[in-house]
Amino acid sequence: MDSMVAANSSFDESVSKNNSSDSSSSAAKSTTRSIHYDKVDLETFATETDKYIGKNVETSGEVAYIQKNPDNTDIYYVVILPKDDHASSGYSYGTVTEINMDTFDETNINEGDNITVKGGALTSTIKLNGKTLKSDIVVDSVSVN
């Protein structure tokens, strides 16, 4: 009987240790979730894309075009341009954002909306309407302004 009590006590200590390491692991995970995004205006991001590759960025623009990714129907391509830029100068610069379908649907994004996106910056990864685009943001979060 004493050996069973000792075994149970040892088991309880092991569970307690695992639970405490799980909580410290959870605390570490929640700390790493706090991602820093460099705020950058859309013109700077679109014209100096190489400076931001692999970094987390936050930028805003007006939704000019929305298309489902033909290779992955869970992703929408959303082209954003500086507000009123496309009306005055004919698309001088902008970027494509890749937005998960669930996020897209929850946020209710439409052409003409002014949105702010936060996500990871890439370059030359998307082909849209036969052109390889210079800049791309894989979106972590989006808000309609």
Rank of each mutant, 00 (worst) to 15 (best):
S34Q: 12
T31D: 06
D85H: 07
V57A: 03
A27S: 15
K17P: 02
D38F: 06
T107Q: 09
D85C: 08
K127C: 05
I80K: 00
D113P: 09
D41P: 00
K55S: 10
T116D: 03
S89R: 14
L122H: 10
I80Y: 01
G94R: 02
E48P: 03
L81W: 00
I53H: 01
V40T: 05
D140W: 08
T59R: 04
S3M: 13
T97F: 09
K51I: 05
K127I: 15
Y37L: 02
D113V: 14
A46N: 05
D41T: 02
L128E: 03
P70G: 01
D136C: 12
I53G: 04
S14K: 07
K68M: 09
Y76C: 00
E62A: 08
K118L: 02
E62H: 04
I126E: 01
T107I: 11
D41Q: 05
T132S: 08
S124T: 11
V63N: 05
S30Q: 13
N72C: 06
N129E: 10
E13I: 05
N110F: 13
V5W: 00
D85Y: 13
S88K: 14
S135G: 15
A6H: 04
S60E: 10
K118E: 06
T44Y: 00
D38Y: 05
A7V: 05
F45K: 01
Y76F: 15
V96I: 15
A7F: 07
D140M: 09
E106G: 04
G61C: 01
M4Q: 02
V79Y: 03
S26Q: 10
A27K: 13
T116Y: 07
K127R: 13
S25Y: 14
A27N: 11
G112F: 14
Y37E: 00
S30K: 14
I126V: 15
D50A: 12
S141W: 06
F11G: 01
Q67R: 14
Q67C: 02
A64C: 10
Y76M: 11
K51A: 06
K68Q: 10
Y37G: 00
S3Q: 12
M4V: 11
D50L: 08
D2Y: 08
T123G: 13
D38A: 04
V63C: 05
N56E: 05
G119T: 07
I66P: 05
